[in-house]
C-alpha cells in the first residue's frame, strides 16, 4: 500500500512538474548540456581542436555549415571548444557542490540542532564568509597559489558551504519547533535518529532547489574567473577564456565571443529554471 502510494505520489509530482513549462525547459537544457559534455569526444566535429592546434588558413571563419559556430583567431572550431568548455564548467560546478553541499548541510544540522557554542561558532563563520565576494576570494587564492581549476574550485567551495549552512540551519530551527520532533524527543529517540530520520528528510527538497540554483551561479563565477585569466589555463577550452579571447575581435568577429558567452548563459539559465521549477513543485519559498 505504502509503495503504491509512493509510486502514485512520484507520478503526481512528475505530472505537476511536467505541466510547468519553464521547469521542463530547464530540465531539458540541463540534460542536454550534461549529455553534450559527457559525449564531447564523440559528438564534436573537430575533437582535436581542443588542444593547441593552429590552422591559420581557417582563422576567423564566420558560422557556416562546416563550422556552425565559426572558428577562432587560430582557426579552431568554436562549437567543438564550446562543448568541451561546457565539460569544464559542469565539472567545476559538480566538484564545488559535491564538497560544499554535504559539508554545509552537516554544519547547518549541527548548528541548528545542538545550539550553544556549536551554533555560535558555525553561524559567525557563515557571517564572515558572507562578507567575502567568492570571486575575489578565488582571485586571491589563485594569486598566492597557482591559477588552476583545482584551486578555483577549492576557493569557491570554501565559501559556498556557508549558504547551505544558513539554509539548513533556519530550516532545522523551524522543524525543531514542530510537535512531532518534540514528541520523538520525549519518547527517548536518539539524537542521530532525530537528526537523520526526522529533520534531514524535511530539508532535502529545499537543499535540492538551492543546489540546482547554485550550479548556475558557480558556473558563472568560474567563467568570470577564467575571463579574468585566473581560472582554467589554456589550452584547455573554457567558456570564460573564449569570451575573453574573442572580445578583442569584437564586433567584427562577433561569434568568437558572443557564442561562448551565450553558451554560459544557456547552461546557467537551465539550472536556474530547473531550480525554480523544483521550488514550485516542493513549495519551498525562502530559497534564493
Amino acid at each position: 500500500m505504502s509503495e503504491l502510494a509512493a509510486l502514485s505520489n512520484s507520478y503526481q509530482n512528475w505530472y505537476r512538474f511536467s505541466r510547468n513549462p519553464t521547469a521542463v525547459i530547464g530540465l531539458l537544457i540541463v540534460v542536454l548540456s550534461l549529455l553534450a559534455a559527457l559525449l564531447a569526444p564523440y559528438i564534436t566535429p573537430f575533437p582535436d581542436h581542443v588542444g593547441a592546434i593552429v590552422d591559420f588558413r581557417n582563422r576567423h571563419q564566420p558560422p557556416s555549415l562546416e563550422h556552425w559556430f565559426g572558428t577562432d583567431n587560430v582557426g579552431r572550431d568554436i562549437l567543438t571548444r564550446v562543448i568541451f568548455g561546457l565539460r569544464v564548467s559542469l565539472m567545476l560546478a559538480f566538484v564545488v557542490l559535491v564538497i560544499a553541499v554535504p559539508f554545509g548541510t552537516a554544519m547547518g544540522l549541527l548548528a541548528g540542532y545542538f545550539g550553544g557554542w556549536t551554533e555560535i561558532v558555525i553561524m559567525r563563520l557563515t557571517d564572515i564568509a558572507l562578507a567575502l565576494p567568492p570571486l575575489i576570494m578565488a582571485l586571491a587564492v589563485a594569486a598566492v597559489l597557482e591559477p588552476s581549476l583545482m584551486n578555483a574550485m577549492l576557493a569557491i567551495a570554501s565559501l559556498w558551504w556557508t549558504w547551505h549552512t544558513r539554509l539548513v540551519y533556519s530550516m532545522v530551527r523551524q522543524i525543531r519547533a514542530l510537535e512531532y520532533v518534540e514528541a520523538a524527543e520525549t519518547l527517548g529517540a536518539s539524537k542521530t535518529h532525530i537528526l537523520f530520520r526526522e529533520i534531514l528528510p524535511n530539508c532535502v527538497s529545499a537543499i535540492a532547489v538551492k543546489t540546482s540554483l547554485d550550479a548556475g551561479f558557480v558556473i558563472l563565477i568560474g567563467a568570470s574567473l577564467s575571463f579574468l585569466g585566473l581560472g582554467i589555463q589554456p589550452p584547455t577550452p573554457d567558456l570564460g577564456t573564449m569570451v575573453s579571447d574573442g572580445a578583442s575581435f569584437l564586433p567584427d568577429y562577433w561569434w568568437e565571443s558572443l557564442l561562448p558567452g551565450t553558451a554560459i548563459l544557456f547552461v546557467a539559465l537551465g539550472f536556474n529554471l530547473l531550480g525554480d521549477g523544483l521550488r514550485d513543485l516542493f513549495d519551498v519559498e525562502d530559497v534564493r
Binding site: G216, L220, A223, S224, F227, G240, V243, S244, A247, L250, P251, W254, S257, L258, G261, I264, L265, A268, L269, N272, L273, D276
Partner: peptide, 22 residues
C-alpha cells in the same frame, strides 16, 4: 531570471559593443 544568469562580463561586453561601437 535572465539578468541573474547573464555573466556580468558578458553583459558588459554586449553593452560596450552595442552602445559604444554599433
Amino acid at each position: 531570471i535572465v539578468a541573474a544568469v547573464m555573466p556580468t562580463f558578458f553583459i558588459a561586453l554586449l553593452l560596450q559593443v552595442l552602445a559604444g561601437y554599433v
